[in-house]
Design a protein around this nucleic acid. Structure first.
Lengths: 342, 342
DNA sequence: GTTAGCACTCATTTGTCTTGAGTGCTAATT
DNA sequence: AATTAGCACTCAAGACAAATGAGTGCTAAC
């Protein structure tokens, strides 16, 4: 069977109508509210074909049709028209001065949730490939050592160590200076065993401190896979009856709250060149079981030098893909200009 | 009308039964499942009295009774028996070594949510009355200055400043040294205008840097009222049908997600000597509108020297107050021993 | 190829009846 | 005077049947 232009128009109409109402769409509706000027009977014939092709289904015999995952996939891949609106508002929003990355991300999440009516999640940039920019040791009290590590993107991490043996101020200053000089500009991958051994040699009796400091550095760079994730608008889920069967809603919201499962979803494509832009997962296509009745749209953002994270929008399968994609693109663009100037 | 012992027993029985079932409790149930050995008719008479006193109500004419807010209040204030179980498990749980405060709090939240079947929230310790413990400036690149502030409780804050005019390494070192010496051990309240003016004088041409640094310090100490709050188990709400009327659940979960409203609730009693221990808010007694159908139990914890925060448990009005209070007390005790040793 | 028409399906809504848990009141019992 | 048995009454919830209506597929006419 061939998917001619008319079938495409009908499919599109079904998807869009279902998007708005959440109810199965009947032939009469299509016949009336499109510019095809066909009777419902004709539409019915076409719909039977579309069903045979696996693009739509009836929830029960005497109901209208709703799109299948496959139907959405076709729509997303081929039929989505790029729109260009909604830009102005976003610009306004971003202008508020935000000095902290964390708050910026929270704000973006909130903004997206409020504007799309879907749930939003954002992973903070992971710095896995990032370089050490600055490192410093300072004595704090008698026996504690404060390690401050700054990595590219001006992300600062602190660790407080217990010193096992006394170190003089001079020792600390020297070690601090030396470590900073040696490690500056290196990525984690470049801090290899040879380098570590050499550092320890130079430190002599303070080798154990060097070890602890390196641990702290590793921690700062890799964040131990504990990427912070911010979410907003989980309760938007309640706006879609098809997701509000008690158990489904509970699972989705639970997943959004616990966050750690989201990490897989959001960090999956980070290092995959092919999947940089916007990705759409329909129904079971996403890896999180609790979200099998949802669609997830993700977008990878990059602040600077490999400092990248992901934004995700979670909604019903009938989500307004056009709108979501447009809004995401705009946010990306905004982030881009914000951070290029920095 | 007098509240004699028998009435009290009946009220208690109603509350406890309703706690378990969530269904209105009838006279026959009470007659059968208490050791009062009274017929249902007698119970009915007593119940009519209790209703007149405003302690219980009927949802509709031919239903059993459920406790009113006032009934719960009486129960909580006078009838609750202290139990002492559940301790062992908690000890075990806490033993896992946790090195970061944030993670500890998250873990506690998770633990409480899992063990009580209610939603849990924890505010991180607010450092409003805390002292500066360590302060340091470091040059970072050509024109940036890294300010590191450590306050009591080893909470570290970093700020990166742009320097408007060039400062030599020596200048920075001196200023850093001087500021550290001057501010060390002071609370925000003690950093007054006189002190600030003096500091600026000493800094001479770098007065503007001093100003920015002081801003950063203030920021670190006060956290600008932005106390981080961790939540867990929001979806436990779904376990209680009376809270699962679409709108109610959505509002509660939304509030838990947005967090900022919780801050009021959790920080309200921090500086009130009278309200240090455990507080119970029933229904409308708590200030958050969205939770008017819930009860909230809060407990203030103190880590060290005025470093205090609050734990809150949110559940239905028929929550198991005894259990919640016991568990909270235990967690408090654990926190105490953990931090006294530090 | 398109459409009008019709018989058919079936989820949903509406209305009616029944059931049963629970009450309040009164009169008998202790 | 307190307790209880008994009975009439109320009302939410469940069961069932009928009515509704949105939607379909098929056939025959245009």
């Amino acid at each position: 069977m061939e998917l001619d232009e008319r079938k495409v128009k009908i499919l599109k109409a079904i998807i869009q109508n279902y998007q708005e109402t959440g109810e199965p769409v009947g032939s009469r509706t299509i016949s009336k509210y499109t510019d095809l000027n066909l009777s419902s009977a004709t539409i019915r014939n076409e719909m039977a074909d579309l069903e045979e092709m696996g693009l739509i289904v009836q929830p029960h015999t005497s109901a209208g049709r709703i799109p299948t995952d496959q139907g959405y996939r076709l729509y997303v891949d081929q039929l989505m028209a790029d729109k260009d609106k909604e830009v102005a508002q976003i610009k306004d929003f971003m202008v508020q001065k935000v000095d902290r990355l964390e708050q910026l991300l929270r704000q973006i999440a909130r903004f997206l949730a409020a504007n799309t009516n879907y749930a939003t999640m954002i992973s903070a940039p992971s710095v896995s490939n990032s370089k050490v920019k600055f490192l410093q040791l300072s004595r704090m009290g008698e026996d504690k050592l404060l390690v401050t590590v700054v990595v590219e993107g001006n992300i600062v991490k602190n660790t407080i160590l217990d010193m096992e043996r006394h170190m003089s101020d001079d020792d600390i200053l020297h070690l601090s200076f030396h470590l900073n000089n040696t490690l500056n500009g290196l990525t984690m991958a470049q801090i290899n065993l040879g380098l570590i051994t050499k550092l320890k040699e130079v430190a002599g009796p303070n080798a154990d401190v060097v070890e602890k400091v390196l641990e702290a550095v590793a921690d700062a760079i890799s964040m131990e896979g504990e990427v912070p994730i911010y979410t907003s608008g989980a309760t938007n889920i309640f706006k879609y009856p098809e997701l509000t069967t008690d158990d489904t809603a509970s699972q989705i919201i639970g997943t959004l709250e616990e966050k750690q499962q989201l990490a897989e979803l959001l960090t999956a494509n980070l290092n995959d060149e092919d999947k940089q832009g916007i990705q759409i997962y329909i129904g079971n296509e996403n890896s999180v079981q609790a979200m099998k009745d949802c669609s997830v749209v993700t977008a990878t953002y990059e602040l600077k030098d490999g400092l990248q994270g992901t934004i995700g929008i979670v909604g019903p399968k009938r989500m307004d893909y056009d709108k979501v994609v447009t809004v995401l693109k705009n946010v990306m663009a905004q982030l881009d200009t914000m951070f290029k100037k920095d």
